[in-house]
C-alpha cells in the first residue's frame, strides 16, 4: 500500500482522527482516558505506581510512533502495491483500490466523531471540567460479596446492616491539579516525540529505517520476531500441555481409570454372575444336593439358634 490518501479520502480522514485519538493528542478521546490512567498510576499510594506510570508513558510514545508509521505508510508516499493490481483498476473494480460502500463508511464516520469528542464527557477538573464518569463504576467496584452468614444476619436484623457491606470506602488520596496538568503536558510531549520519529523515518527520510535496522541487526530481529515470545510459549507451555492432556489425561487417566474403572466394575460383577450360573449344571442329582444342603443349613440354624432367640 501507500499513497492511498487521494483514492479513499473518507477512510483517510476517519483513520486520521483515530490515529490522533489513539496516540493521545488533545482534544481527542484517547487523550483523556490515557491522561487519567497515567495520572492515577502516578499518584497511587502503591510503590509500583511511579514505575508503572513511566512504563505507560514510554509505551504511549511507542504507540504514537507505530500508529503514525501505519498512517504514513498507508496513505502517503508512492504506492507499493504490485503493478498487476494497478492495471486491473482500469477495467474492473475487483482488485483495485476504491472507497468502501456506505454501510462500512457510516460506522467509520460515527466512530471517528466519537473518537474526537468522546473524551469530553470525562474532562478532568484540572483542565476545567468535572469528570462525569469518574464515579460511574464505583457502585460495582465497591460491592461486597455477602456470605450466607452475613445475609442471614442482615435479613434477621436490619437492612442497614446490608448497607454496611455495600457502602463505598472513603475517597483515596488525590494529587493536586497542577500535577495533573504537568503530567498531561509530559504525556502529550512524549506522544509528539513518537510522531516526530515516525515522520522522520517514514515520510521525510524513508531510507533511514533500513539503515538503522542494519546497524542493530540483533535488536531488529528480536523485535521483528516479537521477542520470540510465541515460540517460547509454544515450547514451554502449549506443547507440554497438549502432550500431557493427550497422553496422560486422555489416554491414561480418562480411558484407563475412568472408563476402565467402570468397565472393571462391570466385568467383576459379571464374573461373579457367571460363577453363580455355574451352579446350573442341569444335573438333577446335584440340584437335589443343593436343595439338601440349603435345607440342612436352615435347619441347623434353627436348631442351634433356637435357644438364643427363644422369646416365650
Amino acid at each position: 500500500m501507500g499513497g492511498l490518501r487521494k483514492k479513499i479520502p473518507v477512510t483517510f480522514w476517519t483513520m486520521t482522527m483515530a490515529v490522533f485519538a489513539i496516540s493521545g493528542f488533545p482534544p481527542f478521546a484517547g487523550f483523556f482516558s490515557k491522561d487519567e490512567i497515567l495520572y492515577q498510576a502516578f499518584v497511587s499510594p502503591n510503590s509500583l505506581g511511579k514505575i508503572l506510570w513511566f512504563v505507560g508513558l514510554l509505551t504511549a510514545g511507542l504507540t504514537s510512533f507505530y500508529m503514525f508509521r501505519l498512517w504514513y505508510l498507508t496513505f502517503f508516499g508512492e504506492s507499493r502495491a504490485p503493478k498487476a493490481a494497478h492495471d486491473d483498476h482500469g477495467n474492473g473494480h475487483a482488485h483495485g483500490v476504491h472507497e468502501s460502500p456506505w454501510i462500512m463508511l457510516a460506522p467509520l464516520a460515527i466512530l471517528a466523531v466519537l473518537s474526537v469528542i468522546g473524551g469530553w464527557v470525562g474532562v478532568p477538573a484540572a483542565l476545567g471540567g468535572h469528570s462525569e464518569i469518574e464515579h460511574f463504576l464505583s457502585p460495582v467496584m465497591h460491592a461486597q460479596y455477602l456470605s450466607y452468614e452475613q445475609v442471614s444476619v442482615a435479613m434477621s436484623t436490619h437492612p442497614q446492616v446490608v448497607a454496611q457491606f455495600t457502602n463505598p470506602p472513603s475517597e483515596a488520596a488525590e494529587g493536586s491539579k497542577s500535577l495533573e496538568l504537568l503530567l498531561a503536558v509530559v504525556s502529550v510531549a512524549v506522544a509528539a516525540i513518537g510522531w516526530f520519529f515516525a515522520h522522520l523515518f517514514y515520510f521525510a527520510k524513508p531510507a533511514l529505517p533500513a539503515q538503522l535496522a542494519a546497524k542493530v541487526r540483533g535488536l531488529y530481529a528480536l523485535l521483528l520476531n516479537k521477542y520470540w515470545i510465541d515460540e517460547l510459549y509454544g515450547a514451554v507451555i502449549v506443547t507440554p500441555i497438549l502432550l500431557v492432556s493427550r497422553y496422560v489425561l486422555k489416554g491414561l487417566f480418562d480411558t484407563g481409570v475412568i472408563t476402565g474403572g467402570s468397565l472393571a466394575l462391570g466385568y467383576a460383577t459379571q464374573g461373579v454372575g457367571s460363577v453363580v450360573q455355574r451352579i446350573q449344571s442341569g444335573n438333577i442329582r446335584s440340584y437335589a444336593g443343593w436343595l439338601a444342603i440349603g435345607a440342612a443349613a436352615l435347619l441347623l440354624l434353627t436348631y442351634f439358634g433356637f435357644g438364643a432367640h427363644l422369646t416365650f
Binding site: Y148, E149, V151, S152, V153, M155, S156
Partner: peptide
C-alpha cells in the same frame, strides 16, 4: 437463593 442462604446460616448456627 436468599431464602436458601438463610436456611444454611440457620443450620450452621
Amino acid at each position: 437463593v436468599n431464602g436458601l442462604a438463610g436456611n444454611v446460616a440457620h443450620a450452621t448456627v
